[in-house]
Design a protein around this nucleic acid. Structure first.
Lengths: 239, 239
DNA sequence: ATAACCAAGTTGCCTGACAAGATGGCAACT
DNA sequence: AGTTGCCATCTTGTCAGGCAACTTGGTTAT
């Protein structure tokens, strides 16, 4: 079935070529705006076939590092560097990586909560309140409430109206939530006492947002995330 | 939302196919761990050739959405969602987007400064101090000092030892700096008075980091970024 | 000199083919 | 029977060659 015993699969030729070109561009070997060699030429110099070159270049195009014009050639993108940022998270649960990820999540979420308090519309507030109630219902139902927890934070982030916050938060929440799930499967320890605390912290955040108290919202969010990180630490295996 | 409405260029077949598969996976049309149709099959069903299918799937692999095993097939990745986050920034001067970007930058940078104050080694402090002096030299030289400014912040972020902060900050700094450069080319207005203020704010940050005053570092950073945003607003064209 | 034009180069895409790895079933053996 | 070993078959990875659409720069004709 799954059992993804990921031995490092051999990198494909397109992989190594893409990385090589990427490296050459970053190193300034090809200047911005410069035309890079034709596919045929790259194929011969690197000893691979043209489809491989196409795949590699296609990847760079996708990452905004080069743009190509039919009939003309491929050019490395101007405007210093890529127009898309890639955040690679190795699926592997490396403790260090998870902690770094959580730090980033805390930074994003606390700022987002502050902004949400400043900008929330009445509709935003209603949405956040609904998620708060959904969380309450989950608790009384005896559910894990992880999904509702995430939804609550998502509703807050959406009130910022900042797409970057929204996207990043979605991604990070997903990641961390996934980590929690897999980790919890090992320890299998339910903590209903914790959830009451979570809900109290959530309520503080909600009240601050309701009152448009930006500073208070930030502090409430920081407090909540700090507590959450501590609760989470239980699931972390000691190194 | 992130409609790739690249007006300049018609989307390639691989593009549309990749987006389509991406959409199907996100929509749950293909479950995690499920094997998706063979390349040949996809080629016939979508009416394109196998190389195109390969390119599209290669892109999804690159983004961590699917994994493929030679001889077996391609499977959509487990672990809820992608393992890489893509932040697409349309290269061009959309005021809304720049403001959102700057907000994100402020969130990252102020948190990073706080962390840096907690974790800095003596070596980190020296590196940051060096950049501070370089900035001073640039001012006295009459330079723009944008590069030195960025380098100062980079040195701080590196002191966090958090790779995600480092990478994201690098990207955002690059983007914003690029915006400043192009915008400044229009207004072409040098502001030596501003730079003295910048330097003062930088010094406050430095001192707080030196004293390991996390709270003070955060406040100094927030103050600096707030001021910087206001100075930057000059370059923003009214909508 | 200027304008139309054509040939070479380049990307976008296709067909066909072979090698390497994986899978499932069939046959042989215990 | 149950297990083991082998093989046909499928799938991905890679290659070769070729045609169409487009860009570019020089050449020719006016």
């Amino acid at each position: 079935m799954s059992a993804p015993s990921h031995l490092d699969r051999a990198p494909s030729l397109a992989d190594v070529l893409a990385h090589r070109l990427e490296h050459d561009i970053a190193q300034g070997h090809y200047a911005p705006g410069e035309k890079l060699p034709s596919e045929q030429q790259l194929a011969t110099t690197y000893g691979v076939s043209r489809p491989i070159v196409r795949e590699a270049i296609g990847r760079l195009k996708h990452d905004g590092l080069v743009t190509s014009r039919q009939g003309s050639g491929a050019f490395v993108a101007e405007s210093g560097g890529a127009s898309v940022f890639r955040l690679d998270v190795s699926n592997f649960k490396d403790r260090q990586e998870i902690e770094s990820l959580i730090e980033l999540l805390m930074a994003i979420e606390s700022s987002a909560t502050e902004l949400a308090a400043q900008r929330r519309t009445d509709q935003d507030l209603i949405a956040i309140g609904n998620q708060l109630e959904a969380m309450q219902a989950a608790i009384e139902r005896g559910d894990s409430g992880v999904d509702e927890d995430v939804a609550f934070h998502q509703a807050i982030v959406e009130a910022t109206k900042n797409p970057f916050f929204m996207d990043l938060s979605t991604f990070l929440d997903r990641r961390v939530r996934h980590f929690i799930r897999t980790a919890r499967a090992n320890t299998a320890k339910l903590q209903t006492g914790h959830m009451m605390a979570v809900q109290d912290e959530h309520r503080d955040i909600f009240n601050a947002i309701r009152d448009r108290d930006a500073q208070g919202a930030r502090q409430a969010a920081e407090n909540h995330l700090k507590q959450a990180a501590q609760r989470l630490a239980i699931y972390m295996k000691p190194v």
